[in-house]
């Protein structure tokens, strides 16, 4: 088991390396530079800045430097927010994004599983159709529509929630963003759960359990649910990686100071170090969560063995 974890982490290194390399050169090939767009920069100052950040070095040398810094755990300074290092920016924004993302994920997993199970147990009845309708709506309506509609209805019309802002992490400020972020995930989980639960309920070993006169509770919870939960487990890895690293849409619309906007802003401003930092952080999250999920999978399903 430990050997497996070790091996997985080891194989993650080349993946990470490829991602860093591709991202590094891709953004460098793009026209423009970090100090081109800022108006009012005299050529001398610009040259100075570029020299200071080593941007005049040959590309390969910059790449080697960057890799070296990365190995020492440093993402470098942000070009556009010169008072901060990239690490500091993440230290500030990531906890906020993680808070919102975790809440949304937990909400989605709980509510989605419950709704999906209810639907599966009442297949082709009213409860089932309601869940399907909800899931269809949730997965069809994009967040950049849900978010302003939530603001409009709960914020402006009913005045139940603030329209936006972080409010130093007040609970009421999190409701809107978490709801917006969770809605499509609830839909996905409910759909997955419904499908896998129906399949699980139809499986032969459930028929066996019924034929042996086991209670409904045992049939549904002990036998059907455990098998049905496997697709949800696989879903959780990528979903967690995506949710916890912040959502551009939600953070923009609700004015949340998370890390979700970093990438877009940084890419547009050619803030190379911040772009790279975001890519690395997201890749790391993805790798770690996928590993956790695979280990979790083995816990639920004894047929899966890692050794």
């Amino acid at each position: 088991m430990l050997r497996y974890v070790f091996r997985r982490l080891l194989t993650a290194i080349p993946t990470l390396f490829v991602i860093v390399t591709v991202a590094f050169f891709l953004i460098r090939v793009a026209p423009g530079g970090p100090f081109n767009q800022e108006r009012g920069l005299s050529p001398e100052i610009r040259a100075n800045l570029e020299a200071q950040f080593g941007l005049n070095d040959p590309l390969w040398l910059q790449y080697v430097h960057y890799l070296g810094n990365l190995l020492r755990g440093s993402f470098g300074p942000s070009y556009n927010l010169p008072d901060f290092t990239v690490t500091e920016l993440f230290a500030k924004g990531l906890p906020i994004s993680v808070q919102i993302g975790t809440s949304a994920l937990v909400l989605a997993l709980l509510l989605g599983s419950i709704l999906g199970t209810i639907a599966a147990l009442n297949q082709n009845k009213l409860a089932d159709y309601s869940v399907i309708a909800l899931a269809t709506a949730g997965s069809t309506i994009p967040t950049f529509v849900t978010a302003p509609v939530i603001q409009l209805v709960f914020g402006l019309s009913w005045k139940l929630l603030p329209i936006g802002g972080w409010g130093d992490g007040a609970l009421i400020n999190k409701v809107g963003p978490v709801l917006t972020l969770a809605l499509p995930q609830i839909a996905i989980v409910a759909r997955l759960m419904r499908g896998s639960m129906i399949e699980s309920l139809r499986s032969h070993h459930i028929r066996t359990a019924r034929a042996l006169g086991l209670s409904d509770w045992s049939v549904v919870v002990k036998h059907a649910l455990r098998g049905a939960v496997l697709p949800i487990v696989s879903f959780t890895g990528p979903a967690a990686a995506a949710l916890l690293t912040g959502s551009i849409i939600v953070e923009t619309i609700f004015s949340i100071p998370g890390v979700g906007r970093y990438f877009v802003d940084a890419a547009l401003n050619r803030d190379y170090t911040l772009v790279m930092g975001t890519v690395v952080v997201i890749a790391l999250f993805t790798i770690v969560f996928n590993l956790i999920v695979d280990l979790l999978y083995a816990v639920v399903d004894p047929r899966v063995r890692y050794d």
Binding site: S203, H205, T208, L212, G213, S215, H223
Partner: peptide, 25 residues
Amino acid sequence: LNKVRGRKISMIFQEPMTSLDPLYT
């Protein structure tokens, strides 16, 4: 019914590979 099934009347099936729950001993 569940007092009869598995107690008074039992059943075995065609599919030995899938009739047992794969997740329990």
